[in-house]
Design a protein around this nucleic acid. Structure first.
Lengths: 222, 222
DNA sequence: ACTGGCTATAAACGATTGTTTTAAACATCA
DNA sequence: TGATGTTTAAAACAATCGTTTATAGCCAGT
C-alpha cells in the first residue's frame, strides 16, 4: 500500500521537523520534500496543516492514553480500596510516557512536541488536546488526590503543573542543555539518566511543606 | 520627539504580541498596524525582525541584570566570607525578576518571552541571550554552589534547570492555567500568590535527596 | 531662506506560505 | 479487459511574509 506508506512518511517527517523548529517555522514544502512525497499529499490525506499537527499528536497520545488507562486499571485492581502511593503513580506515568515513543522515534521528540503544545499553539491544539485527552489527566489527578490527602486541592493542582513544567521544560530543551552540561561536566547525559535525576526532585516537590499562609512573600529587602 | 515615541510604541506592541502568539506567528504588519506606525519603521529603527526581537528582550534583561548584579553585590558585602544561604539567593533572584517588569508591562509578558526564548528560537535568540546575559547566570550559579556544597556539580546544574522549568513553564502558561484553576477551585490566582506557592516547592527541589546511583530507574513492572 | 540629516509614508519588491486545480498513473473489481 | 475510484504528480492560485526603495515632511544650523 503506497497510501499508508505516504501517510506514515509524512507523519514521521513532520513530527521531527515540528519538534526541531516549531509549527509555524516548518512549511509543508519542508515536510514533503524531506519525506519525498508530493506537496498536495498533505492536504489530500490530512485536509489541512492544522489537521496534520493534530494527527502528529494523536499518533503519540492515543497509544499513551490507552496504555496509561490500562496501567491505572492494573493499579486499581492491585490496590483495591487501598490508596495507591504517590511514588507508584508517578512511576507509572513515567513508564507509560517512556514506553510509547520507544516504539517510534524518540522521547525527545515527544517531549518537545508537548512543550510546543503549551508554548505555541494559540488555541486549536490546546483545545484539541484538552478535548481528546483531558479525561486521562482527570483520572490521574483523582488518584493523586487520594495519595496526597494532606494537600489542599488548589495546592495539589499547582504542584502537578510545577512538576509538568520541570519535566517538559527540561526534556524539551534537552539538546541545548545537554551541550552545556557535556561541555562543563564532561558527562554524557541520556534521557534515562535525566529521569533518574528527576525522580527525587519531583517527589520532593510534591511533598514540600505548605506555603506560608498570610505573611509576605518576599519579606526581606533591607 | 516622535522618534522615541515610535520606537517605544513598536517595542510595547511587539512584546505583547510576541508573548501572545510567538515570533513567527506575529508579523511586522501586525505590530505596526496595532502600534499605529508605518511598516517600514521597524526595519528603519531596528534593522530587521530579528533585531527587533533582541531589542524586546534587551529592554527587559538589561535592567534585570543590572539590578541583579547590584543585589548580589549587596549580599556579598553583607555576608563577607560567609556562605549566603540558598533561600536568600533564590529570594533575591525572585525579587529582581519581580521588580523589573513591574515598571513596565507585566511579569506575565516577561516570563512568556523567556519561555519562548527556550522553546522557539532555533538559534539567534539563544545565542544572543547567552552572549549578553550569561555572565549573571554564571555568577549566580557560583554562589549557589557555595550554598549547596552537598550537591555534585552536575546535579546542581540540572536542578537549577529543573527549577527554571518549573517557574518559566508555570508563569508563561499562566493565563491558560489560571482559567482552569479559577473554574475548578473558584480561587483567583495572582502572580504573587503563585510565587508564594512556588517558594517551598523550589527549595524542596534543590534540597531533594540525591538520586539512586546504579539501580534501575523504573524497577517495577511485573 | 536654504541646505543637510533624520524620520515618516506609501508603494512595490521578490520570496514563500497554505491550498487548489488539472491531469496522469495506479489499483481494484465486475 | 474495461470501468471506477483512489493516489500521485506538477503547476498555478491568491495571500502574506520581511525587506527595500523612492518620495515627502520636518527641524536644525549657517
Amino acid at each position: 500500500m503506497a497510501q499508508t506508506d505516504t501517510v506514515t512518511r509524512i507523519l514521521d517527517t513532520a513530527e521531527v521537523l515540528f519538534a526541531e523548529r516549531g509549527f509555524a517555522e516548518t512549511s509543508l514544502r519542508n515536510i514533503t520534500s524531506k519525506a519525498k512525497v508530493n506537496l498536495a499529499a498533505v492536504n489530500y490525506h490530512f485536509g489541512s496543516k492544522k489537521a496534520l499537527i493534530q494527527a502528529v499528536f494523536a499518533r503519540y497520545l492515543d497509544p499513551f492514553t490507552e496504555r496509561f488507562h490500562a496501567a491505572l486499571d492494573g493499579l486499581e485492581a492491585e490496590y483495591g480500596n487501598e490508596v495507591i502511593p504517590l511514588e507508584i503513580l508517578l512511576e507509572t506515568m513515567a513508564r507509560c510516557v517512556l514506553e510509547v515513543p520507544a516504539e517510534r522515534n524518540s522521547l525527545k521528540v515527544f517531549m518537545k512536541l508537548l512543550g510546543l503544545a503549551y508554548s505555541q499553539a494559540q488555541g486549536h491544539l490546546r483545545r484539541y488536546i484538552q478535548e481528546h485527552y483531558g479525561s486521562v489527566f482527570t483520572r490521574f489527578t483523582g488518584l493523586v488526590r487520594r495519595a496526597t490527602p494532606e494537600l489542599p486541592d488548589a495546592e495539589r493542582f499547582w504542584r502537578l503543573h510545577f512538576m509538568l513544567g520541570t519535566v517538559i521544560f527540561t526534556l524539551s530543551g534537552l539538546d541545548a542543555l545537554r551541550d552545556i552540561a557535556e561541555k562543563d561536566y564532561g558527562e554524557h547525559v541520556s534521557v534515562r539518566e535525566l529521569i533518574r535525576r528527576l525522580r527525587p526532585v519531583v517527589v520532593s516537590s510534591m511533598q514540600a511543606p505548605l506555603p506560608a499562609t498570610v505573611d509576605d512573600v518576599l519579606p526581606a529587602a533591607g
